[in-house]
Design a protein around this nucleic acid. Structure first.
Ligand SMILES: [Mn+2]
Ligand SMILES: [Mn+2]
Ligand SMILES: [Mn+2]
Ligand SMILES: [Mn+2]
Lengths: 218, 218
DNA sequence: ATTTATTTTTAGACAAACCTAAAAAATAAA
DNA sequence: TTTATTTTTTAGGTTTGTCTAAAAATAAAT
């Protein structure tokens, strides 16, 4: 139905649309590491396929058909990430590139059987929601740890970055997806936080770290 | 390193070489469903990449480097087939096309972790050997069931066709990979065989079926 | 309201992988 | 050993997805 290149564009438009309704040629160019001229070419093509609405110079957005396609690709991407981490013991900093390839395997039977095999997970290893077979996303009322008041118990639900540096730091501090904790103190000087991890010790983390960790009340 | 198209050609040359040392342009054309002219183009390209030795009009064969590459692709293909059947409950008549895509996922880490996850299987669901991480193939001294003498106990090791029609027939007769049986009688009139399946009933199969089933003595 | 800077599109090319039609080489038949 | 048939290659095109360089449109600054 769609080529790998087309799928990557569709997914990129979807992701950029989370930030702002209308997506610019330059934003896509940056996201996909291609030149703006190439983006323009592809946008024309996707328009004729009715995947996007696009008027020259005025940006682009996904049609409802386009959204469906995007969610299908994202579903595959995140299910494969889950598989890699949960079954093959990859670290969550290593899975993105591989999933970037696996997401283009076309068989829907494969995706659905994989989903079942994994036990219909709702969130991928980075805490991002996995669309179900109908494209529905579970939503979580999550917020940044940096905005949580003192002495409220929360659970880590997602990370705002997927770098190995972040993973290294989290491992060192004893934090991971699902960890429950309570903010004990916030230091005005540098914004650092003291956290009490459920059933474990107290750790100190930087403001930088707190502002890439999403949590939900528990 | 190699494009999907290149990999498909390399694999095709490997497979055709099992039949005859030198592979013809037309044979590749038939195998890959492309025109001979396209094959010629690709052969020139693969020659400059030192993957094959090729002289115009005189056929083609893999270099030692080419063999390594081919075995790597076949390893991925068969490991994925095993995964699909063993973990995702696909029938072995459904896995080939999907594996045809999955075999091109490049990460070697993925392949090796998949191999470990599956328990280092030696044979794929069709009974074909899976190359190990160094490209080594397990060999079996297998022969066609149609050539087995009466009252010798053998085990089904492989199938010579991967069609769903064959699978349907095998299922119906209660035969599958690993089934042990003994040839009770061979009818000269039509070459049909009467088999006693270990711990089960006696079944009759056609000569056509017997000549696509590989077995080994046990 | 012009001028300047940025963004986006057009124009023209290129590599990859395919195609058809025609020419050339190799093989088989007469 | 000619002639006919088959196989393979060459020549010239097409589509997809990319690029650079230049033009056009939009946005920002004076
Ligand atoms: Mn991708
Ligand atoms: Mn993810
Ligand atoms: Mn393939
Ligand atoms: Mn197989």
């Amino acid at each position: 139905m769609f080529t790998v290149a087309e799928e990557n564009y569709i997914k990129a438009v979807y992701h950029l649309q989370q930030q702002q309704e209308m997506v610019s040629t330059n934003a896509l160019s940056a996201e996909l590491q291609t030149r703006p001229a190439s983006v323009t070419d592809m946008l024309k093509k996707l328009k004729t396929k009715r995947i996007i609405s696009y008027e020259p110079y005025h940006g682009v957005k996904l049609s409802s058909e386009g959204k469906k396609v995007a969610l299908g690709i994202i579903r595959k991407h995140r299910l494969w990430e889950y598989f890699l981490v949960d079954k093959l013991q990859f670290g969550w900093d290593e899975v993105h590139e591989v999933a970037e390839e696996l997401e283009h395997i076309s068989s829907t039977k494969l995706v659905d059987k994989l989903d079942a095999f994994l036990g219909y997970p709702k969130f991928d290893p980075h805490g991002d929601p996995i669309p179900d077979s109908k494209g529905r996303l579970a939503s979580q009322q999550q917020e940044l740890l940096s905005g949580i008041p003192i002495s409220k118990t929360v659970e880590i639900t997602a990370v705002g970055s997927q770098s190995s540096e972040l993973l290294e730091l989290l491992k060192h501090k004893g934090l991971q997806m699902g960890t429950r904790l309570e903010v004990k103190k916030i230091f005005d000087f540098d914004g650092s936080l003291e956290l009490k991890i459920k059933n474990q010790q107290v750790v100190t983390i930087s403001r930088d770290l707190a502002s890439v960790l999403f949590v939900k009340p528990v």
